[in-house]
Computed example of a mutant assay.
Amino acid sequence: MTLDDLRVFVAVCRAGSLSAVARDLSCTQSAVTQHVKRLERQPRGVVPTHAGRVLEAAASEGLVGLELALRRLRDLADGESGTVRVATGATTVRHFMSDAVVTFRQRHPKVNLEFRTKSSSRACFDALADSDLDLAWITLGRPVRGIEQRPVVELPWVLAVRAGDPLADRASLDAACADLGVRFSFDTSVADWDTALLLAELGVGRAVVPALPGLPVPGDGALRLIPLPSLCPLPVGWAVRRWDALSPPTRAFADLVESYRRDGARP
């Protein structure tokens, strides 16, 4: 099999359709069929045999390693150029990477930074596995096959309330809730932490959020942030396919972000 054979084979296993892969690759269905002779045809699409599934798993891992190696070789040949592609949440760059971005641009002016917004850590994992992304900023969780996770910082939790809220000046949240008869309910959903903080600041409700970099604790102005030390901190950090296959500029950007977040000072 050639690399193209393996790419088509893996694509068909994932899509379950010869015609869909043919459209994506702008080729004929018969051409795709020649790459997947080991597959069983069933009434609803294409399903690999057991042997095909074994080959698919091995091919997927092998293609990732080969593509990373080829990209690293191109980066080495180009020197200090190329692109660093990062998957992030909606507010990640603002709270975790803004200072690192400035320093990186100064140190690596010929390297492009490309940020792609994803809605969840799961979406970041999928993007790493299926695209040309280099890094993803995630909430760390259970191991994911083919993905390496690296913790960078743990974020304590806080309760965000509007100044003047009965809970704003209470030292003990549990005791305050009992005294005031406060019960928490969930009647508003948000997509990111900044939106939750804004709604709390507007007095629309209260929000339990991580203490994001740049937010003072316990808080001042129209917003109050009450520490919640009884809750386990939220671990966040990097996810990659393979650290040892990252290009030098990509490693440099990841290291910069870690330095700022761990030291809290300009490296």
Score class of each variant (00 low, 15 high):
residue 185 S to K: 07
residue 155 L to R: 10
residue 244 D to H: 12
residue 101 V to L: 04
residue 218 P to Y: 03
residue 29 Q to G: 13
residue 58 A to R: 15
residue 86 V to C: 05
residue 15 A to P: 04
residue 232 C to G: 11
residue 7 R to S: 02
residue 43 P to T: 04
residue 69 A to G: 12
residue 103 T to H: 10
residue 57 A to M: 01
residue 250 T to W: 08
residue 120 S to P: 05
residue 62 G to R: 04
residue 264 G to Q: 01
residue 70 L to W: 08
residue 232 C to P: 13
residue 164 G to M: 08
residue 86 V to R: 06
residue 131 S to W: 07
residue 246 L to E: 02
residue 16 G to A: 02
residue 92 T to N: 11
residue 199 L to Y: 13
residue 87 A to S: 15
residue 121 S to Q: 11
residue 201 E to R: 15
residue 244 D to G: 11
residue 115 F to E: 01
residue 240 V to C: 00
residue 120 S to C: 07
residue 257 V to S: 04
residue 118 K to F: 11
residue 11 A to L: 02
residue 88 T to C: 12
residue 127 A to Y: 15
residue 60 S to M: 12
residue 93 V to D: 07
residue 71 R to G: 05
residue 34 Q to S: 13
residue 2 T to R: 05
residue 77 A to Q: 06
residue 162 R to Y: 14
residue 89 G to F: 02
residue 135 L to E: 05
residue 217 V to A: 08
residue 262 R to D: 01
residue 139 T to K: 09
residue 198 L to I: 14
residue 135 L to N: 05
residue 25 L to D: 00
residue 177 C to Q: 04
residue 29 Q to V: 15
residue 171 A to Q: 09
residue 117 T to F: 07
residue 226 I to W: 07
residue 74 R to Y: 01
residue 242 R to T: 00
residue 147 I to V: 08
residue 243 W to E: 12
residue 24 D to K: 15
residue 254 A to T: 05
residue 244 D to Q: 14
residue 6 L to W: 06
residue 30 S to I: 08
residue 35 H to D: 11
residue 222 A to H: 15
residue 246 L to Q: 03
residue 241 R to G: 10
residue 226 I to G: 06
residue 249 P to F: 07
residue 205 G to W: 13
residue 181 G to S: 00
residue 202 L to G: 06
residue 218 P to R: 06
residue 53 R to Q: 11
residue 123 A to M: 08
residue 103 T to Q: 15
residue 51 A to Y: 11
residue 249 P to E: 06
residue 140 L to C: 03
residue 146 G to R: 06
residue 113 L to R: 00
residue 2 T to S: 03
residue 7 R to W: 02
residue 50 H to T: 15
residue 3 L to M: 13
residue 256 L to Y: 09
residue 214 G to I: 01
residue 174 D to G: 09
residue 67 E to N: 07
residue 60 S to D: 10
residue 204 V to E: 14
residue 189 S to M: 12
residue 77 A to M: 06
residue 25 L to I: 09
residue 182 V to K: 02
residue 214 G to Q: 05
residue 223 L to Y: 00
residue 53 R to D: 01
residue 242 R to Q: 08
residue 219 G to I: 10
residue 157 W to T: 09
residue 18 L to E: 10
residue 108 H to C: 12
residue 33 T to R: 10
residue 184 F to H: 10
residue 86 V to D: 04
residue 101 V to I: 02
residue 54 V to F: 04
residue 191 A to D: 15
residue 228 L to R: 00
residue 72 R to D: 10
residue 192 D to K: 12
residue 193 W to N: 14
residue 86 V to Q: 05
residue 263 D to V: 09
residue 40 E to K: 15
residue 85 R to Q: 12
residue 98 S to H: 13
residue 129 A to P: 11
residue 190 V to S: 04
residue 47 V to C: 14
residue 27 C to F: 03
residue 33 T to V: 13
residue 34 Q to T: 15
residue 151 P to R: 04
residue 154 E to Y: 09
residue 114 E to T: 08
residue 46 V to G: 02
residue 153 V to P: 12
residue 36 V to R: 07
residue 40 E to M: 15
residue 119 S to V: 12
residue 88 T to Y: 06
residue 182 V to L: 02
residue 21 V to T: 03
residue 120 S to G: 07
residue 261 R to A: 14
residue 199 L to M: 13
residue 254 A to R: 09
residue 36 V to P: 01
residue 241 R to S: 13
